[in-house]
């Protein structure tokens, strides 16, 4: 009887999730350049990682862009979400309104939101430049700007920042801003539910002992919220690793992953190798590498972080 119930959904998951993954692995073992060619074993992987200089350069560049994107998005997004959730939880007036407002971007589609953000980031009459113009900063080109942000800040204050410390391009930072705006509400909701699970008695007891607001936060809230923090960290990181839609809608046209390839993350490189270069074998191999990376990262996260997480 359970089998009868299980079959439809298992079958669908097998067809649409498991099989394509296996098929992609199969494709990645062949020279599949528009059409299936000779069996190459792991040569596609070798080409991507070191053997073919052009491919290897593109891959390592995309790796570094991906990790940069993770580094600028995740800490900021989580920090903001944590603070906002904490404030909202303190019986703030109009709390429901704020929660609604913060969560709304999350249910908005990337395409619709990007339509508006293209206008916000517009170099000539965008909202952001208009705002910055009031404080005397002008002429930023946001999504078109390949220069590193540290470099730009350095230039503004008269410091010469070397190339290796240029930082992520302003274009990548712009996309990160969008991404943070888009996913913030999701994290806030998770944190709010975690906050709701912390027994009020803990706070009362600590207050009797004379703990300050800051102490309450660091000694009670943070440790007891760590399952949620850990969870959000994992989910958000995987989400950023797989980022595609926002980069697609903001950079294409003219060049997917532009300007100057500074927003070409791994997943964008996969797409490009497939559909702009017609290299299906190499594209599949890249996809497999990205999958392994996500898996490895998830495993490490669980192993390392789980020990530090306090479960109630």
């Amino acid at each position: 009887m359970p089998f009868v119930f299980l079959f439809p959904a298992m079958a669908l998951l097998a067809i649409f999730k498991v099989f394509p993954a296996l098929f992609a692995i199969y494709i990645s073992l062949f020279r599949w350049d528009v059409i299936q060619g000779a069996f190459r074993g792991l040569d596609n992987y070798a080409d991507i990682l070191w053997a073919n200089p052009t491919r290897a350069e593109a891959f390592w560049r995309a790796m570094s862009t991906t990790f940069t994107y993770v580094l600028i998005t995740i800490p900021l997004e989580m920090g903001l979400a944590l603070v906002i959730a904490y404030v909202l939880f303190q019986r703030l007036r109009g709390r429901t309104f704020y929660r609604t407002a913060y969560y709304l971007p999350y249910v908005t589609s990337t395409v619709a939101a990007a339509t508006v953000f293209v206008w916000i980031f517009h170099p000539q009459f965008g909202l952001l430049n208009a705002g910055l113009g009031l404080v005397g900063i002008s002429g930023l080109t946001w999504l078109q700007e390949p220069d590193g942000v540290f470099q730009m800040i350095g230039r503004a204050v008269g410091l010469d920042v070397p190339g290796w410390a240029a930082g992520p391009s302003l274009a990548l930072v712009s996309i990160a801003i969008f991404s943070i705006w888009h996913f913030l509400g999701f994290q806030i909701v998770i944190f709010l539910s975690g906050l709701g699970n912390i027994p009020e008695e803990y706070y009362e007891a600590a207050r009797l002992d004379g703990a300050s607001g800051r102490q309450l936060f660091t000694n009670i809230t943070l440790p007891l919220l760590s399952p949620q923090i850990f969870f959000v960290f994992t989910i958000a990181t995987i989400g950023v690793f797989r980022a595609f839609n926002e980069i697609y809608v903001f950079t294409f046209p003219p060049l997917l992953g532009g300007p100057l390839d500074t927003t070409r993350t791994l997943n964008v490189l996969v797409f490009r190798t497939f559909f702009q270069q017609g290299q299906i074998g190499l594209g599949s191999a890249l996809g497999v590498i990205l999958t392994l990376l996500i898996l490895a990262f998830t495993v490490i996260q669980f192993r390392v972080l789980e020990r530090r997480v306090v479960y109630q």
């Binding site: 359970p2 089998f3 298992m10």
Partner: peptide, 26 residues
Amino acid sequence: MKRLALVPVLALVLAACGPGTTAPAA
């Protein structure tokens, strides 16, 4: 049980995909 459910489905899908994926002569 899980494996039981998967095997026939995969076989079906593989059968459907197999021949078509070989490319026409160049």
